[in-house]
Every structure is written in structure tokens, then in C-alpha cells.
Write a protein that binds this DNA or RNA. Sequence first.
RNA 1: UGCCCGAUGGUGUAACUGGCAACACGUCUGUUUUUGGUACAGAAGAGUCUAGGUUCGAGCCCUAGUCGGGCAACCA
Length: 561
Amino acid sequence: MDNVEEEKKSLNFIEQIVEEDLKEGYSSDSLKFRFPPEPNGYLHIGHAKAICLNFGLGERYNSPVNLRFDDTNPSKEEQEYVDAIKYDVNWLGYQWDAECYSSDYFQQLYDWAVLLIQNGKAYVDSQSSEDMATQKGTPTKPGVNGPFRDRSVEENLDLFNRMKQGEFKEGEHILRAKIDMTHTNMLMRDPIMYRVMHKPHHRTGSDWCIYPMYDWTHGESDYVEQISHSLCSLEFKPHRELYDWFLDQVHDEKLRPKQREFSRLNLNYTVMSKRKLMQLVEENLVNGWDDPRMPTISGLRRRGYTPKSIRNFIDTVGVSKREQMIDVALLESCIRTDLNKTTNRIMAVLDPLKLVITNYPEGETEVVMADNNPEDENAGQREMIFSQEIYIERGDFLEECPKKVFKLGVGKEVRLKHGYIINGVEAVKDADGNVVEVKCTYDPKSKSGSGSEESKRKVKGTLHWVSASHNVTAQVNAYDRLFTVENPDGDKEKDFKEFINKESLSILKGCKIELALKDAKPHERYQFQRLGYFCVDNDSTSDHLIFNRTATLKDFWAKKK
RNA sequence: UGCCCGAUGGUGUAACUGGCAACACGUCUGUUUUUGGUACAGAAGAGUCUAGGUUCGAGCCCUAGUCGGGCAACCA
């Protein structure tokens, strides 16, 4: 049955490539993938695409997937990021086969570089970066050979060795591959393989003062690990030629990895580059990498997103070679679908307005039963306390309420969910004319679940509520999109930060929550009836409850207005 | 004056590799509902960037354009 459905779903182009390879002789146990983040920042939803693609392939073909940290630039990389990345990948529900580091291969890479020098395929250049840039030409103009291009093997070997020994300052010498300065692909114009860097590395400490560049490192690392399919994003397409050239230099009879490229994921109303996300964090425009407004995995987690919803989202957007600009509405749809089935419903009043039921016996309370989740028969029921004074949502009262609007008004009735049907009598106002309290009457025979005729009446609106003396006060963080425009970095004139939505966070204090949540723990998720899905924040304590709004419910009425 | 990708409803992805353009999200309309949620039923919305060509037949193949993106860091 599962197979039938599997069969029906068409393969994405990467899966088709793998299938093709399998048909043409790859054994199924030769399949191996990898996810290769650079530990210089936190993972975001775009990385989730790469993670789900690679680990998804691993699951599909029962193949190992390595987690490889591409740590060849000690000036940007930190252990903190390594730890955060591992946490995120696990959280998404994936287990890597081996935890690898490009830095594990520094010695092997060095030995191969020596081999290239010996074969006349690499040389030490000793010019300034400006001179080298000039010689490199432009996309439309071929480059020219530099003066050190024909150094002898012996001299190159000696210089390269002394680079490694730390005899030179940064920028004095670099090692370049000797390919073709007139190549139409700029990347093939004698690309740099090593630079001198007197910086401690988060793993190798001060063992090295030369560090390999990405192009030289990546393919050879794939080769060492025997990765069959090395998947990366589209901008690396031109690098493939170089990837293959470098592999040619060291390849023997072992499996030869192949690089293939797919498009990045972009979401509207946010930015997705690590550099820009870093800026938001460093300039305190958000509260850290895990700010619930951030498109980072950690941000989404704190916001209340589930791994399942993210995986489902990634599955839905697909894999192709055209730049995707996905509507956040799709992401939201994914989390709603998940949470609708799994979260218990709770009454929470975010903007409380006191309501007094004048014909309800003063000082009396009673217990009413409430379903935890109408979508889940096994979710059971809980008790709520009903009393004469309760809170309703300020926005649910309109003194003069039109028939078509399902709210409480003076002379207009409404049902209190799991409670009684009430009828508005009077709006009590302060000196400025603000409504501070609403008086109403209730129909004692209309109690929900009582089975009475009165309880079965059709009433236009149903309100959520919480007893005025039986509740817990909480803070609710209501999040909105971080940017006011669909593509904040799409404007050439304006900086993306000019489009930041100043109302992206509304902190609501004094929210009244049903007593059942008084001991709610961080990460717990609930549906606040009629409002949306909420998640207990990391910093929440029983003394100071904090909820983050994950997503609102779909609101037909809000759109209507 | 170059090289490399890409182009299918508003968005994204399909189309059994040449046979009536489908699915999801979004939008709209009903039904049900003690959440203006969910569920259910239905509708609108593209004739596949353009022009040629091959073919009985082209979104798929070929040619030439157009448009969009990428390529000149001692970044990855």
C-alpha cells in the first residue's frame, strides 16, 4: 500500500539521476550522501531543504549520510555553530552515519597538493592579490599568465613546505592550481588552493597555518568519504568543472563522486542569507538566532514549529533547478495541518474584558466539561470553572452589533463555549467612554452538554472565555512577518533592513489563561480556541508564563473586513 | 561582449519520457459545525516565454531569439 503510493509520486530530478545511475551499474550499497554545512552560522529553512534532500535520499535508498562540517576558514568558524547545527539536524529527525570535518583531511589534502606540484599541476604564486586579480581577466576577457607560473617543481615544493612551516606572513604566497588562464570559466583560471592564515582552528588548533580553499577541499573530501552524489545549490554549477578537474588529479579506481546542483529555497517576507541573518542578530534587530521571527531552524522551533511540519513543507515545495520563492502561507498551512490534529484546545483571553452575569448566583462556581481536541477522540476532556464574573475578548464585544457579525452586543446573544448562552444587557463605561465591563444575563437551562432544548438552540456566535477568579496571567508574544515586503533583498536601491516590519512582535501582557495551563512547560503546544496555535517559550516559568504565537487560525472573518 | 543555468494558473511542483496540462498552497461559493477553525462538496484561474522546424500529434525533440538568474573573494 505504501509502495503503491510511493510509486505514484513522481521522482524529483535528483532521484531520477540516482535511479539512472543504479540502472547503469551503481550498486545500491555504493550510494552515499552528505550534508556539508560550514559552521559559521545557524541553519535556516533553506538548509532544511538540503538536509531533507540528502537524508531523505538516505532513507529512500537505505544509504549512509555523513554530516560534514566544511571548516576550512578558521576566521569565521566556531564550535558554537557546530553544536547548534548538530542539534538542529537531530531535531529535524535525522541521524548521520559519520560526523566528519574537512579539517580531518588537512594532511591528506596537503599530501595531494604536493603530488600536484610534483606533477606540474600546481605552483606557488607570490604576487599581491590585486595583481592576480588583474591577470585573471573578466568573464568576457581572458586572463594572462603571471610571472611565477613557471617556477620549477623544486622551488614550488620548497616554498609550499615553508608556507606550511609558518615562514611567511599572510598574503605573501599562495598555492594555485595550474590550469588555464584563458579558460572561459573564470574558476578554471588557476584557482587558489591554499592560503597562509595564522589563525587557530576550532579543531586543529595551531597545527596548520595554511588552509585549503573550498574547491580544493570539497570534492576531495567527498572522495575520501566515498560520497556517490554530492548535492549542492545552483551557484556551484560553474564549480563543477573544477570539482571534476581536481578529482582527475587524485582519482584512482575508487568510486568517483559526482556533483549535482539544485535550486535554493527562498521564502517571501524574509531573508535567507546567513550574512543578512547575522546582521539582524548583531544589530539587535531581533533577539538572537532563535528569535521566533527568524527563518532559522532554531527560530522556527522556538516559534512552535514541529519537525514534522518542516519536513512536510520541504517535501511539498519539491526539488528543481529554478529559483523558488515560496509563499510563507504554505509553511503556515503545514504547521496548522500538523497542530490541528495534535494540540489540545485551551481557552485564553488575550485582551480581557470583564463580563458580569447579573442573574448568576453571586459567589457560586460550577464545573463545566470541555473537549480537549475535537480532532482526536482519545484526547479526553478537562474541567473548567464557570462563575458569575468572567473575561471575554475585548474584540468580541460590540455595543451595537449587527446581525451578521457573530459577536456579543447589547441585546444580542451569543454562546460561551462549553458554558451557557448569554445576552448582552449593558456596556459599563469609564469617564472617557471606554467600555470597562459588560453586564449580561444567562439562560440557566442552556448549559452546554446538558442535552436540554435550550442548550441545543442555534446561536450565531460562540465565544471563548475564562473565569475572572480562576485563571492564570501570562505574557503572549504575537509574531507577525519580519518584513513588510515580499522580497526584502530584491531592491537594488534600498537596504533590506529598511523593510523591517516594526510591528513584527506584539508583547501582550495580562493575558488570562485557563487554569489548566498554570504548570505549562517550555515547548508545549496548544491551540488557544478561536485564536491560533501557541507554544510555551523557553524562558517561561510557572511564575511568569510566556507563550509564543506559532500561527493564527485561518480567519475568514478577518479577511472579510 | 564570453561562459553556465532556467522559463508550465497568483506561488511551487507534476505530466507514465511525444498522446485531452494535473496536484498542493492561495482565492471564491456552498454544506456541516458549540472554534467565522476543522471536515466535506464545488468553482474560477495556465493552453506551457516568442518565432520557426521535425511529427498524424510537441509543454516535452531541433534551431534562432526574448526574458530572468549566476560567474572576476587569499569566502563557502
